[in-house]
Simulated assay, not measured.
Amino acid sequence: MSDDLSKRVEQAAQGITPQTKPDERRRYLGSLRERVYVRMNNAEVKDSKLTSLFLQHIDDFKGYTILINGNITDDGFLGDVEAACSKKNIPFTLVNNETAKTGPEDSAVLVVSKNAINRQRIEIGQVYAPELPKTELEAPKKKESFWHKLFHGEK
Rank of each mutant, 00 (worst) to 15 (best):
F61C: 10
D47S: 12
I122Q: 02
D47L: 06
G70Q: 00
E131P: 11
G63F: 12
K143S: 14
D80M: 12
L78Y: 02
Y64P: 05
A139C: 09
Y128E: 06
F77Q: 09
P91S: 09
L110Q: 02
N115H: 08
G63E: 01
S145T: 11
Q56M: 08
S107R: 02
D47V: 07
D80K: 14
S145W: 04
V81E: 01
T51E: 05
D60K: 13
L110N: 06
N69H: 07
L137G: 14
A116D: 07
P91Q: 04
S113K: 03
F92Q: 07
K142R: 00
N118Q: 11
N115Q: 10
A116F: 09
P133D: 00
K101Y: 08
K88F: 14
F92K: 01
H57T: 06
N69L: 02
A139I: 08
F61V: 01
S113G: 01
N96L: 15
P140H: 02
V95K: 04
N69D: 11
K114E: 09
K101Q: 10
E138D: 11
N118C: 04
L132H: 02
V111I: 09
V111W: 00
A139R: 10
L50Q: 04
Q126H: 10
D47Q: 07
N115I: 06
D106W: 00
L137T: 13
A116E: 13
A108M: 08
A83H: 03
V109L: 08
I117F: 03
L67I: 03
E138T: 06
L137Y: 07
D80Q: 15
A139L: 12
I68K: 07
E131M: 15
D60T: 08
I68S: 04
H57F: 00
S86Y: 04
P140F: 08
H57A: 05
L50A: 10
N69W: 08
V111N: 08
D75F: 08
K87R: 15
E136M: 12
N115P: 08
E138H: 00
Q126T: 05
